[in-house]
Simulated assay, not measured.
Amino acid sequence: MSPTTNDVVVLGAGMHPWGKWGRDFVEYGLAAARAALADAGLTWPDVQYVAGADTIRNGYPGFVSGATFAQALGWTGARVSSSYAACASGAQAIANARAQILAGLADVALVVGADTTPKGFFKPVGGDRPDDPDWLRFRLLGASNPTYFALYARRRMALYGASTDDFAAVKVKNARHGLANPNARYRKEVTVEDVRASAVVADPLRLLDICATSDGGAALVLASADYARRHGVTDPVRIAGLSTVTPTFPKTVLDLPDFATDSAMTVPPPDRPFRAALAHAAYEEAGLGPSDLSFAEVYDLSTALELDWCEDVGLCAEGEAEALLRSGATALGGRVPVNPSGGLACFGEAIPAQAIAQVCELTWQLRGRAEGRQVENPRAGIAVNQGLFGHGSAIIATT
Rank of each mutant, 00 (worst) to 15 (best):
D255F: 07
V313M: 12
V298H: 00
Q365I: 11
L344D: 02
W364F: 14
G392P: 13
T76A: 11
P182Y: 15
Q374N: 14
R156N: 08
N377P: 07
V313R: 09
P250Y: 01
D215T: 10
V336C: 07
R229P: 00
P146I: 00
V10M: 09
L179G: 05
K20M: 11
E361F: 05
D308M: 06
S89W: 03
T4N: 13
E306Q: 08
L222T: 04
G90N: 06
K173Q: 01
E361A: 03
A31W: 09
L102I: 15
D54Y: 05
P337F: 00
M15N: 03
D255H: 08
M15T: 06
D7F: 04
T246H: 14
V233P: 12
G387K: 00
A169L: 14
Y28D: 06
W21N: 10
S144E: 13
A31T: 15
A380H: 01
V253I: 14
V200A: 12
G217Q: 11
A91C: 11
K251I: 15
A353N: 05
E311R: 01
A397W: 08
T147M: 15
L102Q: 10
G333H: 09
P61C: 02
H177A: 03
A281W: 07
Y60L: 13
A78F: 01
L110S: 01
V80C: 11
G342E: 06
A212P: 05
E297F: 03
V201H: 02
Q354W: 04
Y160F: 12
A202E: 05
R272M: 15
G52T: 00
T363V: 05
V338L: 08
T398Q: 01
V26D: 03
E371G: 13
V47N: 05
G392N: 06
L30P: 04
D262A: 10
Q365P: 14
A397K: 10
G161T: 05
V336Q: 03
F63L: 15
L278W: 05
L151K: 02
R23W: 12
K173G: 00
K251D: 13
S81D: 01
A370W: 02
L11I: 10
F25C: 04
A32R: 02
S214Y: 04
E361V: 04
H231E: 13
S82K: 05
V375G: 02
